[in-house]
Design a protein around this nucleic acid. Structure first.
Lengths: 220, 220
DNA sequence: CAGTTTTGTGCAGTCACTGCAAAAAGACAG
DNA sequence: CTGTCTTTTTGCAGTGACTGCACAAAACTG
């Protein structure tokens, strides 16, 4: 049956890579998601409680009731549980950019797509604790930065396709990188602002400054 | 002798922190610099030859002819040898920003200061190999990102003092973060450009795009 | 139920990194 | 030169992240 959807189903897949053709209703799928979520929730909770340094992978797994070895079937490092983006979000980003209106400026497309990504992230159950842990332990950014770069790459690829250039084009690269930077600064600003401040507004304001060429704000 | 230059000379200092009052001519000072340099040169060279993954701290120390334990007296992680900034550069940055002309726009001050920092880094003997290793092994950026954040912090602090605001001010933060991003993109672009391209020009062009609000370039 | 595929687990091993205490070596006064 | 103080190097023992491998357990399929 060479015409099957899976040309090479023989390859052993790791639990983390949800095979494309796996039906969402299966028990395996549900268990996999449950395990991943349990590990992430346990880890983030313990990080928040005792500080990331004091928490070992063994602790996390004890709390999630799985074997220590299993942790690394789902996350490549202890701190990866702090990544706010679903793998799917990163993958989708380039496509979302492409399907923005063609007359829209690249920076605006980036803002729109990253805004959606942020909404998705914030709807996750662990978002708040993730953000707090990262705020209180800036060293951990090291371990999370790779996922931001992945998001940036996807963003840049989308922008390149949309503007019919290459992902190596300096302009497109700068827009992508600056957009991610704006995202980071917006979140940081938002975290320190009044509780009723909306993240969407912080993001808008930050991108607005970028559009104004980072000129100094007016004094009154 | 409480009147000495060192009020508390009893504290045990680690070799990495060059005590403020140490005379530059002393044999200790020279040996310390030599050891640090030997370790860095050995590490970067071996990284370039066999790939960072295949090189252990033990290998590095064997090549530099010091004990493995000594490595961690100078660097906090194996990959820290790839940081292009001298610790001094990071420290000086805020001051350099402050001493820029007062009428200069913040983004321009940042460009000027980062340009100098880049010149300093490029004058180092290991710069080229550092850059190549980082280009060929993007995963390692994780371990270097902290030093970029430190540079960013120093930059932001200088900008805040210069514009008489606080380092938490969203505008100042964004300018600092964007400037570092521009630096990164400029270096990346430069690495892929023709060999006669000047890094200074890439930097100028990148900042120029930022000043133009990241508007799309004109089509001809 | 029997066979296949995927997921969980145990085990052994490598290696980065740390604290501690003692050895080695430079600095300095007399 | 000698003894003393300070700084740097080193050895040692330990923790814990992470990996490869082989096998057990569980889920899917017919």
């Amino acid at each position: 049956m060479a015409g099957s959807a899976h040309p090479a189903p023989t390859a052993t897949e790791h639990p983390a890579d949800t095979g494309v053709g796996t039906r969402p209703g299966g028990l395996r799928e549900r268990k996999k998601r449950a395990t991943r979520q349990a590990l992430q929730r346990s880890a983030v909770t313990l990080f928040r409680e005792h500080g990331p340094n004091a928490v070992t992978v063994e602790d996390i797994c004890a709390h999630a009731e799985v074997s220590p070895r299993t942790f690394f079937n789902y996350f490549t490092s202890k701190e990866e549980v702090l990544v706010p983006w679903a793998p799917e979000t990163i993958t989708n980003t380039s496509g979302r950019v492409v399907s923005r209106p063609s007359e829209e400026a690249p920076l605006d497309s980036a803002q729109a797509v990253l805004g959606e990504a942020l909404d998705t992230a914030m709807s996750g159950e662990v978002w708040r604790d993730q953000a707090l842990v990262l705020r209180d332990h800036p060293e951990l950014i090291e371990r999370v930065v790779t996922s931001f770069r992945a998001l940036e790459s996807s963003l840049v690829e989308g922008l390149a396709r949309k503007t019919d250039t290459s992902p190596e084009d300096p302009y497109v690269r700068l827009v992508g990188a600056s957009a991610i930077t704006a995202l980071r600064v917006a979140v940081q600003t938002w975290q320190e602002s009044e509780p009723d401040e909306r993240l969407r507004d912080c993001l808008e304001e930050t991108f607005e400054r970028l559009r104004h060429g980072l000129r100094p704000p007016h004094r009154h």
